[in-house]
Design a protein around this nucleic acid. Sequence first.
RNA 1: UGACCCAUGGUGUAAUGGUAACACUCCGGUUUUUGGUACCGUCAUUCAAGGUUCGAGUCCUUGUGGGUCAA
Length: 367
Amino acid sequence: MTSKGRILVAMSGGIDSTVTAMILQEQGYEIVGITMKTWDYATSGGDRKETGCCSLDSINDARQVAVEKGFHHFIVDIREEFGDYVIDNFVDEYLAGRTPNPCVLCNTHIKWEALIKRADALGCDYIATGHYARIGEQDGRYFIQRAVDLNKDQSYVLWGLSQECLKRSMFPLGNMTKPEVRQLAADYGYVELSQKPESYEICFVPDNDYRGFLKRRLPDLADKVDGGTYVNTEGKVIGTHHGYPFYTVGQRKGLGKAFLEPMYVSEIIPETNTIVLGREDDLIRNRMMVGGVNLMKYDTLPAGIESLTKIRYKDTGTLSELKQLMDSRIEVSFLANVKGVAPGQSAVFYEGEDVIGGGIIQGSSKN
RNA sequence: UGACCCAUGGUGUAAUGGUAACACUCCGGUUUUUGGUACCGUCAUUCAAGGUUCGAGUCCUUGUGGGUCAA
């Protein structure tokens, strides 16, 4: 077999990772498929469903493709690490009054670490996934670039990857559109797979109800935090809520109480189980502090660098100035107002198509 | 228990005697590898009983339930 090298492909059994494997195989790589078992649906309740990145029940689908296409396939059980890290952090963050993004954590700390280790053990030069993103290189540094298909661009959730990981990662779908990928799947003979609908939820919350997940995880929580107070921006009590962990900054729906106008969660105060509600204008911010920063494109940020900063997954980004502080924090000054800056969510900095880096939002302010 | 005011969806309000409307909540959908946002949509209303009128949320009477003034 004329091989360009051995490559480890993370396969969920879904359309994207399956097509990824087949593209690379066609390009002459020797494929080693790997599927990570991160969570048991059997113990988490809810229906079985596919998800974008971690369709855990599709191990068999992945294996079948490997058999049909004639490459190796391994299953890695990382339930323990996944639980200790991603799920515990998920719960802890909500208890701290923040809004976690488990997919980012999982990519950064679980998925890629496990993949790299396996790649080494299996003698693979590269690892590949079905993410819609690209990788760029400049002055010896590697960085994520947004996908050609902006509708599917997943660069936002990949800001945490280290240089070591990036150096050895490939995203064959980064310059393709979703319709093209579907067509390819059909061309490869996987018609059913090519028509699989997209679906979405946190992979370990299959019923898409994170509040219910928290309650199942912490049986005493609901009673303990029920009956907290809503206050307005003047501090006046205007109602009661079901407990601060069940709300997120910027939230409008689900407040359970009618006010004269739309009200939004403006601030969460875990210490007193208080939620500050404000009008839409009260969500406006133009500065924020980002911690746990991972820089990709630069070793240290050029002074006064401007970036298009995203504060949530589906965000077109806001022009801003970045100022790197000593302790791996970045102070962001937005050049336009942003609304609903939620602590715990990821901030990702873009320069054109390139991801400068990212971090976790710690707090925000106005002027 | 003297006088006066009020009563409309789950909530807050609107409707010269002429098809009961708006906002918020709830629920559903679209979008989305997290949360959330945004957008679309559904359900649902005249306190009760009489009366006047071609026609009553609106006017009259009584009842009920609130509120205000009652040395």
